[in-house]
């Protein structure tokens, strides 16, 4: 690579990185400045954070939204990982013709647009009297073909010798899964956890439909509420956006390595 080309690639990457991070920096500045400065485009962090926080908790039940969002996302993540990983393991380790056919049928579900499912789903849960329950929120989201495929792919690299040895020792099949497969697949679980938690935390459409009581409010709903009303307080809005973004950003930054490794495995 010539020197000029190297310089150009650095310039392009710097510009793109700047453009990617800038709106987030803008959000950070916005959260610490009064509304009027946010609109005027002040790009230096201010000292108005506490005031914005006071306005925010005065208008919205921030504590409840945070609690709900964390509870929902953590429960969804735990159940998704459990159900999809054991299914992926089952599809790969005990594979036969029938299971392969079933897998390709399940993959078709990836093509079904959620907008098409939401009305029948809503009707189903209202007949069962489950509107406004966290079960109704969870059930449609905890089993996804994408996750099953990810774990099926990971199980492919799980050595058969380990399974044989464990069987000789008399370890039960479920024991092999829990005591041997899970500990060796840390990076796949890391990637799956990052994706599932982010999706669960950020999901807006389904919670908006199925959770209609004020006390079921989640963080994205709270942020969406902040813009309604006659005049928008942009400082408060940006603080809401910041609080909604922090958990997913932190999880992503912490699990970044295993996330990329997990995706690399899935793309193979």
């Amino acid at each position: 690579m010539t020197k000029a080309k190297t310089v150009i690639s650095y310039v392009i990457l710097c510009v793109v990185s700047f453009l990617s991070v800038f709106p987030l920096y803008y959000m950070l500045c916005g959260a610490t400045n009064p509304s009027i400065d946010v609109i005027r485009g002040k790009l230096v962090p201010g000292s108005y954070l506490l005031e914005n926080f006071k306005t925010l908790i005065e208008f919205q039940d921030l504590g409840r939204a945070l609690f709900n969002s964390f509870r929902n996302s953590i429960l969804i993540t735990i159940f998704t990982l459990l159900i999809c990983s054991i299914a992926g393991y089952g599809f790969e380790i005990y594979h036969d013709k029938g299971k392969d056919i079933l897998m390709s049928i399940l993959l078709l579900a990836m093509m079904l647009p959620f907008v098409a499912l939401m009305i029948p789903l809503f009707k189903m849960f209202s007949t069962w009297g489950m509107v406004n329950t966290w079960m109704a929120l969870m059930l449609p989201s905890i089993s996804t073909p994408f996750m099953i495929m990810l774990f099926r792919q990971a199980a492919r690299s799980f050595p058969a010798d380990i399974i044989d040895a464990a069987r000789m020792e008399g370890v039960s099949e479920i024991g092999i899964f829990f005591r041997m497969y899970i500990p060796t697949m840390k990076s796949t679980y890391g990637a799956a956890m990052t994706v599932t938690f982010m999706n669960a935390w950020n999901n807006y459409l389904w919670p908006k439909i199925i959770l209609q009581r004020n006390e079921s409010i989640t963080m994205p709903m709270l942020v969406a509420n902040l813009k309604s009303g006659y005049s928008v307080d942009y400082g408060m809005l940006m603080l809401g956006v910041l609080i909604c973004t922090l958990p997913t950003a932190i999880i992503f930054l912490c699990l970044q390595r295993s996330f990329t490794n997990g995706i690399t495995g899935a793309v193979k």
């Binding site: 709106p23 987030l24 959000m27 994205p220 969406a224 809005l237 940006m238 809401g240 956006v241």
Partner: peptide
Amino acid sequence: FLPCATSLVSYSMI
């Protein structure tokens, strides 16, 4: 990659 950590509602607001 960082933009992907923001929720769809959040980045719409930004």
